[in-house]
Design a binder for these strands. Structure first.
Lengths: 194, 194
DNA sequence: CGCGGGTTTGATGATGCTCAAGCCCGGTGG
DNA sequence: CCACCGGGCTTGAGCATCATCAAACCCGCG
């Protein structure tokens, strides 16, 4: 199962990994299986690990004062789930993260990850790229949230992450888009006919 | 004027800067004055520099198909303005960045900044912290955009960046919040009375 | 068969947008 | 000194979008 993460890092780096480096990476990660709906992180807890998803799907969300869930982030195979804010600052998280499907993940602490980044060039390469990619993705989503209407946000999602539409039920997608499930249903009906 | 950036870096680092390092930092930045409304970056251009604001205020925004501006970032003294996506990938920017007030800035290319980060420990410390801070800020704003109504988004802004409310006119704040200027005016009236 | 989770649909209402008018205020020029 | 202008803010009326709520439907599964 650790093969996956080796291939993943290697895919982002020009430098290739030595046998020794591969060992060090493998020993830094802790495999863990999550059942459907099992929490990886709950609001109020401090996030100790980052989770790399080998198989399955997770969601990160807040729960507002009315008890409504708002999905901040969806993650599937070869994606990461964690709360960097809590992990970095050691403060209680504002988010929940749970497994939407049964999920195999590889966990790693911030310290261990930092070690890998500083000592293994290929991981460092990955890290630099990933920083940018994450930031750009969040910024683009913010831009869409502010400037597009519900319908156009849906089209953007369809264009950017079509795999989400296959993978998650409609009410999850609606929450990700910041709209009501009923509204999403109507949008979809319109687009099929139009 | 370059003093400011030295103090700025120093403020984020435990390590202190040597005279030589200070020289190297100073020579990496290019001072530039922007007049009111002067562009630092226009949609379609590639972003070559990052801008550190010594004095003044800038805004980063998109213009949609109807010609409406949507502000995705406001920056004042000791903040940065740039389009990391364009700068990193070398692709044309989707954003405009201009000076809202007359602004003194220090410009730096990506390569020069990379040099500073790799060769000067204090700058590296700053860089690591800044990555996280930026990411966290954008993620929090995304969360607010998705899960809060217009009024609550305004309160959050009031709480988080009260200086913006002093510094920018109301229609700019409205655009930053993703709401109409008329709506913001009504929100403010309600809160004064309530 | 009946249950649970998810989706669709209609009726209704709240929220926020659009447009237009009017106000305030500081700056400019007669 | 006053008239005028421009930019920004406020306000009202009407409208579009999206949320809410309730009912019905669909479908896989015990």
């Amino acid at each position: 199962m650790c093969d996956t993460i080796i291939k993943y890092f290697q895919g982002y780096a020009a430098t290739s990994l030595s046998a020794d480096e591969i060992d060090r990476i493998n020993s830094a990660f802790i495999p863990k299986r999550f059942r459907k709906r099992q929490y990886f992180l709950q609001e109020g807890d401090v996030c100790k690990y980052g989770a790399f998803i080998v198989k399955g799907a997770m969601r990160q969300y807040t729960v507002d004062s009315k008890g409504e869930e708002h999905i901040i982030h969806l993650a599937i195979e070869n994606w990461w789930a964690n709360d960097r804010e809590s992990q970095k600052t050691g403060t209680p998280s504002k988010y929940f993260i749970d497994a939407w499907e049964e999920t195999d993940a590889l966990l790693i602490t911030r310290d261990r990850m930092y070690e890998l980044i500083t000592n293994i060039p290929a991981v460092k390469e990955w890290s630099l790229k990933m920083e940018e990619i994450h930031f750009i993705a969040v910024q683009r989503r913010l831009n869409e949230a502010i400037s597009l209407c519900a319908e156009d946000r849906y089209y953007e999602l369809e264009r950017t992450y079509p795999e989400f539409l296959q993978r998650f039920p409609q009410h999850i997608i609606a929450s990700y888009l910041g709209i009501n499930r009923d509204t999403l249903s109507r949008i979809r009906r319109r687009t099929v006919k139009g």
